[in-house]
Design a protein around this nucleic acid. Structure first.
Length: 411
RNA sequence: GCGGGCAUAGCUCAGUUGGCAGAGCGCCAGGUUGUGGUCUUGGAUGUCACGGGUUCGAGUCCCGUUGCUCGCCCCA
């Protein structure tokens, strides 16, 4: 067992795994397109500053989890840990802040140096939707509705619930922060070490803690809702009204927070009960401050990201492998003629295969093994008459079909 | 970063008080040179994760290492 293994936290997608993965991505791509999102393909690595600037110098992702290295020219490069920062950078780099709104769909691998476990990998894949430009709550609701529809199309929505919260605007957060600091300072003894650090830097993140001994304390913490400014409260109310119109069920959860300053207003997570502590399957929110952080003009935006591997795991049934037609020649002379038939089937859009060796029996076994739906059997007798025997491998029925008619017969 | 479990054929796994390295599936070939799924005969395939120790003898017992995996933290 000294063979090379995949690098820790990576995995190969082959066979059923590939089909699940592809189905998730393709479903998301099609639904996003229906909502008017265009796909952008941005680089997998970026200047490190793209992420250190936007994810905050103190976040776990930046301090512990990034794949960062100096390239041969001495520039600091980072494998993207998430998609949003790169999309905002692309928006600014390409001068697209002048042609808003932009509705962006993006998918691909992301990288985080973490301890792998079920539903968590070092190289994983996300689908990502960003709606950049509108400041209206309708945009938030539309993004969430698009996400919900993807979950529904995948059939993974039944054990999944949208948990919704608001982070308010800057004045709301300032007032709330004071209240939180007062509450947790008074209960300092009950806090974990991590949470004590958060109390200094980012008190809202304490609400995110899943530490068992802090659960009661967090449940008793003040909620943001009473601290919302009238404007922020109105925004939040509009989002909920629109969600109802889009038909997206949700539950309010004051524990859904984001630690960074450029997040505001809507924050949400779709959580499944089926994946344990890796239950967040799709998450997002409004980040009106991020584009300016990247050097662009102040630009409102809202978006979401979903983990492809987690969604793929939730699929009850894997998409089936495609069933080909097997071309089965008997003898060398027939094989020569069969190549033409093989190509005519392919030209007609039919998945067609011919084995590379073997007698009739072996080739029929092979056809069965690849789950062929039909076999086109071609012997010298048939060839002389200008026909092939076309056998339906599901029913076992077989009939002679004129060579030029085979593709149409199998379509 | 912390804790638990596991490691034997391509895959899933057995392997008794320490005594010849095994099964099923898969693969290859034959029974059957014009018909698959069923049946049948034969065949190939191992650094028993790695290193050390105990022993006449270790897949089995002991120690260490590595890898995988599940959970915590965090996240998609």
């Amino acid at each position: 067992m000294t063979d090379l293994q995949p690098a820790r936290g990576t995995h190969d997608l082959i066979g059923e795994d590939q089909r699940r993965h592809h189905h998730v991505v393709e479903t998301a791509r099609q639904i996003a397109a229906r909502y008017g999102f265009d796909e952008w393909i941005t680089p997998i690595f970026e200047d490190t500053r793209v992420f250190s600037r936007t994810l905050g110098e103190t976040s776990d992702v930046v301090t512990k989890e990034m794949y960062t290295f100096d390239d041969r020219g001495g520039d600091s490069i980072t494998l993207r840990p998430e998609a949003t920062a790169g999309i905002c950078r692309a928006l600014v780099s390409n001068g697209l802040t002048q042609s808003l709104p932009k509705k962006v769909f993006c998918t691909g691998p992301m990288f985080r140096y973490e301890r792998p476990q079920k539903g968590r990998y070092r190289q994983f894949h996300q689908i990502d939707i960003e709606l950049i430009g509108p400041s209206e709550p309708l945009a938030d609701a539309e993004v969430i509705a698009c996400g919900w529809e993807i979950l529904k199309a995948l059939g993974v929505h039944t054990d999944t619930l949208l948990e919704l919260n608001t982070l308010g605007d800057a004045p709301s957060r300032a007032a709330y922060r004071e209240a939180l600091v007062a509450y947790f300072t008074a209960n300092k003894d009950a806090l974990s070490n991590d949470s004590l650090v958060r109390l200094e830097r980012n008190p809202m993140r304490i609400l995110d803690s899943k530490e068992a001994r802090e659960r009661d304390l967090i449940a008793g913490a003040p909620k943001i809702w009473p601290y919302l400014s009238p404007e922020a409260a109105a925004f939040y109310g509009k989002v909920q009204e629109h969600l109802a119109r889009f038909g997206v069920p949700f539950r309010e959860n004051a524990g859904i927070v984001r630690g960074l300053d450029y997040y505001g207003h809507t924050a949400f997570e779709f959580v499944t009960s089926k994946l344990g502590s890796q239950g967040t399957v799709m998450a997002g929110g409004r980040y009106d401050g991020l584009v300016s952080e990247m050097g662009g003009p102040a630009t409102p935006a809202v978006g979401l990201a979903a983990g492809v591997e987690r969604l793929a795991m939730l699929l009850d049934v894997a998409p089936p492998a495609p069933a080909p037609v097997a071309v089965v020649p008997i003898g060398d002379e027939a094989e020569a003629a069969a190549i033409g038939i093989l190509q005519s089937l392919r030209a007609a859009g039919i998945r067609a295969e011919m084995a590379y060796r073997g007698n009739l029996r072996r080739r029929m076994e092979r056809a069965n093994k690849i789950d062929a739906r039909a076999a086109v059997i071609l012997g010298t007798d048939d060839l002389a008459q200008g026909v092939a025997q076309v056998k339906d491998l599901r029913t076992g029925t077989q009939e002679a079909v004129k060579l030029p008619d085979i593709a149409a017969y199998l379509t």
